[in-house]
Design a binder for these strands. Structure first.
Length: 147
DNA sequence: GCCAACGTTGGC
DNA sequence: GCCAACGTTGGC
């Protein structure tokens, strides 16, 4: 899961212990949260728009998908006038902090590793904020992170 | 249903 | 700040 550290960093998640992953307004990412993610699932926390960009640590899905409350808040930036409580359009999961990697893994290092050539985040034009990761890739990344 | 215009993401 | 690569919107 990607986040801009200026907006919400892994250190902030560490401090707050958990957070509602609201504000996702992309249908593919929504479907992924709604249909694929289950409590207990492991999450790689990626810092985008950072210097350098890369994977900062681990988190975990701690609560099942619920309708994203921010879509109903008419004064908030994530308000969606087309959504209603009966017919919510957007969903979100709760993400809990697990741990920071001992070594931050930069996008550059991810690219250099031949075994991660299929990792979606290193592919050109791949902007989706929530992306699936294969078990093999996940395990290797944890090792690279020093866990 | 097409597609041009526009908006966003995110690396550089 | 630039811009490539998408995704969304809305007129037709």
């Amino acid at each position: 899961m990607k986040s801009e550290p200026d907006v919400f960093s892994i250190d902030k998640l560490k401090k707050e212990k958990k957070t509602l992953w609201d504000g996702v307004r992309n249908y593919q990412a929504r479907n992924f949260m709604r249909d694929q993610m289950k409590p207990g699932d492991q999450v790689l926390f990626y810092h985008s728009n950072a210097t350098p960009p890369g994977i900062a640590g681990l988190a975990e899905i701690s609560k099942e998908t619920v309708p994203d409350p921010s879509q109903f808040d008419s004064s908030g930036e994530y308000f969606d006038p087309k959504a209603s409580c009966e017919k919510p359009r957007w969903f979100c999961v709760t993400v809990s902090y697990k741990q920071k990697f001992k070594n931050f893994i930069s996008l550059d290092e991810l690219r250099k590793n031949k075994d991660l050539k299929d990792l979606l985040v290193i592919k050109k034009g791949q902007r989706l904020s929530i992306q699936p990761v294969q078990k093999k890739e996940f395990d290797l990344i944890c090792k690279m992170g020093g866990l």
